[in-house]
């Protein structure tokens, strides 16, 4: 709808304060870059990039200046004579970006721009995309299903669920103050348990769950029975006899090495299977069957009202 490819049934869309709701896509100042890039296969990188300025009737010299600038920016100026099929996936993406930028729009709309690429290349290009867009200084809306990609590229994240905008805010804020269990879980794997909460000193609450006491930051307007959540990646493990700080004891049921981190599933009596994703350097020793102490730093515990339809339904994606 922002691009003008679909008409809204209700409401208006403004670009720089100007109502563009009924304005057709091709005259809006919004450039849409689809997943598939849609480059013209029979045109070179240069011709693809100058396509839109040419259609708009720019003079040849203006077009040249613009195309040169855009292609330098995306590091494709040396490949300006190449056809799309001669380019790697990453280069095609950069060419599509140059073309979108050369359209001279105020807004860049990116629909899963990295989806078609290999996992490792995606990691490399998402940082590049961020710095490119910063450098150009344009407004960008980037659609993705990849949480990490969203955290890395964006100034602000909008989380959508079932056609509804459930939270908008800076990445760090949404991550540390999620509005709902759904948002919390979507931005990084969470452990949830129901607990009884009791007021404690210093803006804290004491949670009682399965016979264990855990301290957590209080949340205004929330008392009694609550849903407590903590992210797997902030939970660490220690050998059980070294157990120190806040945490729970359990047995490692599953261990998956993932490189930077190790993913553990820990069976905790009274709480069920909990997940921890410590950095490899801190948890290399932990093996399946080991008795461990799983640390749960108080400051990372998030509290929510207990969802009426159950936790599973509150987290469901589809």
């Amino acid at each position: 709808m922002i691009a003008g490819l679909l008409d809204p049934d209700a409401g208006r869309i403004l670009l720089d304060g100007r109502d563009v709701t009924r304005m057709p896509a091709d005259v809006r100042q919004a450039a849409f870059m689809p997943q598939t890039y849609s480059l013209f296969p029979h045109l070179t990188v240069w011709e693809n990039t100058t396509f839109s300025p040419q259609v708009k009737g720019w003079s040849e010299s203006d077009r040249d200046v613009l195309a040169r600038e855009m292609l330098s920016m995306v590091h494709l100026i040396d490949r300006r004579e190449a056809f799309p099929r001669e380019l790697s996936g990453g280069m095609q993406q950069r060419c599509a970006l140059a073309r979108a930028l050369a359209a001279g729009s105020g807004v860049l709309l990116l629909d899963e721009p990295l989806r078609a690429l290999d996992a490792r290349l995606r990691i490399e290009l998402r940082s590049e995309l961020r710095s490119l867009i910063r450098h150009v200084g344009t407004t960008a809306i980037h659609v993705t299903h990849d949480q990490e990609e969203a955290l890395v590229v964006a100034d602000r994240i909008a989380v959508l669920r079932n056609g509804e905008l459930v939270e908008v805010g800076p990445a760090e804020y949404v991550y540390s103050h999620p509005a709902s269990p759904f948002v919390a879980n979507f931005l990084g794997e969470m452990n949830f348990v129901e607990a009884e909460s009791f007021p404690a000193d210093g803006g804290a609450v004491r949670l009682v769950v399965g016979g264990t006491n855990l301290m957590a930051p209080a949340r205004e307007g929330l008392s009694g029975r609550v849903l407590a959540g903590i992210r797997a990646e902030v939970c660490g493990v220690l050998p059980q006899e070294w157990g120190a700080g806040q945490g729970v004891e359990g047995i490692v049921k599953r261990r998956l090495f993932m490189g930077r981190r190790i993913s553990l599933e820990i069976d905790v009596p009274g709480m069920g299977l909990l997940k921890a994703k410590p950095l490899t350097a801190n948890a290399r020793w932990a093996k399946e069957g080991d008795a461990v102490f799983m640390t749960m730093p108080a400051e990372h515990i998030l509290l929510f009202p207990v969802p009426k339809g159950g936790v599973a339904a509150a987290l469901e994606v589809e």
Binding site: L151, V152, A171, R231
Partner: peptide
């Protein structure tokens, strides 16, 4: 020169 938030 820059900082990227990665969660934990």
């Amino acid at each position: 020169e820059g900082r990227v938030f990665l969660g934990a």
